[in-house]
Amino acid sequence: MENDGKKSTALISNISKTFNTNKVVDNLSFSVMPGEIFGLIGPNGAGKTTTIRMMMDIIKPDSGEISILGKNLSEDSKDKIGYLPEERGLYKKLNVLQSLSYLASLKGISPTIAREKTEHLLNRVEMLPHAKKKIEELSRGMGQIIQFLTAIIHDPSLIILDEPFANLDPVNTELLKEIVLELRNEGRAIILSTHRMNEVEELCDRILMINHGRNVLYGELSEIKSRFRNNSIFLELEGDPGELTGVTGKRDYGNYTELLLDGKTAPQQVLEQLISQGKNVNRFEVSTPSLHEIFLQVVEEGQ
């Protein structure tokens, strides 16, 4: 698949997976482009982890195809992908340097480069003084940062992050977000799987929401949000707005008023009417539901 002349980093076509009699992923298709952060969201048990595991070739789909950088998924593809699983785990008895070097070598990085990259990344996250510490001696947050580094040490083209900010303090959360945005700007494709909708709104360019293993929302985040727009306006002004063409109702919230539109009138037309009437407008906001609200609405509809 191509988008604006760019080839997709990951292309997933009609994949399905059934465990015993339970269809966990059902005919799912999507693509992830270079230089974008792609949100993979859905309620618990929706099939997100199974989808990710199929993309990592940890489990095989029953049907459908997965292609990474234009090639069918194979063992070689694994070296192009960085993966931070939701369930974290490292060798507790190894030190930070040994852990990072060993896991980098399994991604095809030579020991010398692995060491250089390890030191560079540890310096980036200000953890170089802890390089010789055993993993079991690190705090949970530090361990999580090391695990994050194992996902990016080999310069992957596709980075899959499953709940990367869970259990991190605000300082480390900001540090990781900063690195994620840097990686996006370097042109890497990033899949962010999370339950935190504010993070998706903050970071993601496009999203895929799955429920019961099926695609229920897919596309540009801004386009999806406008699709779920309530067709109303939040208005704060001095005095009463009076009669306005295209407005079918009003809800008074004290400090501000919500104007309900008839569906044919654009918010811009309402604003023009207010200005022409000489009203002093303090706030004019097109009402858009948060992703959290959209998530709840879509999940409820799917029940």
């Binding site: 595991r53 694994k78 070296d79 699983p85 399994l106």
Partner: peptide, 19 residues
């Protein structure tokens, strides 16, 4: 231990079960 610490998932994202 690798299963309990979930490290197995990281390993299998880099190598095949056979390897």
């Amino acid at each position: 231990d690798e299963k309990e610490s979930r490290l197995i998932e990281v390993l299998l994202s880099s190598v095949s079960p056979r390897q």
